[in-house]
Design a protein around this nucleic acid. Structure first.
Lengths: 217, 217
DNA sequence: AATAATTTTTAGACAAAACTAAAAATTTGT
DNA sequence: ACAAATTTTTAGTTTTGTCTAAAAATTATT
C-alpha cells in the first residue's frame, strides 16, 4: 500500500460515522485537501484492492479488510504519539505531524516491540484509544464537557479537536488529561460556562466546552 | 527533498571514496538497483539543487552542501538503529531495513530529542560513527582483522559488511562488538586464520577476516 | 591510431497521483 | 415534477521517477 493510499484509507475511516451510507467524494476531498476528481480515481483503485466498496455516485464504504487496515495505521500513529510524549518529552500539541510520518513505517515487528517498550498504553496523549494489533478498538465512556450538567464533576480524558492551536490554548488554561473539572454555571445566552479547575474558576466558550471530553460517574 | 533524492544522495556518499573524481553513473545504478539512464536524470536534478557537481560523462561529486545533507541522513539512520537495538531489543542484523525507512522522517527536533533520549551515542550497533548535528563525522582508529599480525590482540569495534547474512554468521560465531580477539595463526595458502575468542579457538576465512574491524594498540 | 567494447546520455514511453475543464448524474427547491 | 444547483465522474494534462532502445562519448585493445 502506498503512502497516499494509506492516507486515503485513514481519512475515509475518520469520516465514516454512519456505517450504512458511503463517505462522499467531496467530504474525502475536503479532508485530504485535494480535488474530487482525484478522489474518484483513488477510490476506484482502493475498490480494486477490496479496501472499500464503491458504486458510482454513492461514495466509499470501507470493507472489513479496509477497517482493519485503517485501525492498524491509527494504532501506529497513536503508539508513536505516545512514544514522542512519554519518552522524548514532546508536548501533546507537537506530535501530530511527526506521527503522520511515522505511521507509514511498515514493520509489524517494530510496532509490536514499540508497544511492549511503552508498556502497552491504552490511550494516546489526547485520550484517544489505541487499537490492538488485530485492529480492534475499545471505545471508552466519555461525555463532552458541553453536555455536562451544572454541579457535576469529571476528569478530563480526551479532546475532540486535537489541533495544535486548540491544545496550545488548553495548555494556557492549564487543562490537561487527568485534571478534574466541575461545572459551576452555564450561561444560556451563548452556552459559555464557568468551571472549577483545581482551585481556580475560569470561563470557557461553548466551542471550547464542545471539544473537551470528561469521564463522569 | 524527496525520498528518492535522499536515497541517491546517500548512495553517492557511500560510493565516494576518492574526493577527486566523480562516482560513475553505472556504480550509482548498481548501488540503487536501477538503470543508468534513471541515474543520469536524477543526478541532473540534484545538480540543479546544488547537491552535487555534474559534468557529462564525468560522474557525480557531492558538493559540501550535499555531503552535509548525506551525513544528516546517515545520522538519522544510525541513531534509529541504536534506538532499535538498545531500546526495542532488536538484534544488530535486523535493524538496517527499518532504519532505511526511519531515516527519511523529516523533523530536526525529533532527531535531537532522540539523540538526547539515547544519551548521545557515538557509534551505531555496527560500530559505525554517528555524525553530529552539523554533519561532521569523527572517524575512529580501527584495523581490519585480516591485516592484524599473528600474536596481536584487539577489540571488535565494527564490521565492514553489515548485511544481515554476515551479521547472523557472526552471531553464530559469538562475535559481537566489544569482544576481544587474538590472532593465533594465519594460513598463507588461503589467508584464513585461527583466532582466540574468549577461551575458544576458531577458524575464519579471509573474507570474514576482511569484514571485521578491530581496535588494537 | 584506428577500431572495438563499454559507458553514458538522449529520446520517447509509462505508471502513479495529482490537476482542470467539461459532461453526467443526483439532489434540491419551488 | 421539472428546472436549478450541486455533486460526481470522465477525459485529457502534468510531474516524478522509472523504463527501453538507440545515439554519442569515452576507454580499451591490438
Amino acid at each position: 500500500m502506498t503512502l497516499s493510499e494509506e492516507d486515503y484509507i485513514k481519512a475515509i475511516y475518520h469520516l465514516s460515522k454512519d456505517d450504512q451510507k458511503g463517505v462522499s467524494t467531496n467530504a474525502i476531498a475536503a479532508q485530504m485537501e485535494t480535488k474530487a476528481s482525484s478522489v474518484t480515481d483513488m477510490i476506484k483503485k482502493l475498490a480494486e484492492k477490496e479496501i472499500l466498496h464503491y458504486k458510482k455516485y454513492q461514495g466509499a464504504r470501507l470493507t472489513d479488510k479496509g477497517k482493519v487496515y485503517a485501525a492498524k495505521i491509527i494504532r501506529k500513529h497513536r503508539l508513536w504519539e505516545f512514544f514522542l510524549v512519554e519518552k522524548l518529552n514532546f508536548s501533546w500539541d507537537e506530535v501530530h505531524d511527526i506521527a503522520e510520518e511515522l505511521e507509514h513505517i511498515k514493520s509489524e515487528k517494530l510496532i509490536e516491540k514499540l508497544d511492549a517498550f511503552l508498556d502497552f498504553p491504552r490511550v494516546d496523549p489526547h485520550g484517544d484509544p489505541i487499537p490492538d494489533k488485530n485492529g480492534h478498538i475499545k471505545k471508552l465512556e466519555k461525555s463532552l464537557l458541553s453536555s455536562v450538567k451544572k454541579g457535576e464533576t469529571g476528569i478530563v480524558v480526551g479532546v475532540k479537536d486535537s489541533s495544535s492551536e486548540f491544545l496550545k490554548y488548553l495548555n494556557k488554561l492549564n487543562i490537561s488529561l487527568g485534571e478534574q473539572i466541575t461545572v459551576v454555571s452555564k450561561e444560556p445566552f451563548d452556552n459559555s460556562m464557568t468551571i472549577l479547575l483545581n482551585t481556580t474558576e475560569l470561563n470557557i466558550s461553548a466551542l471550547t466546552a464542545n471539544n473537551i471530553y470528561l469521564k463522569t460517574k
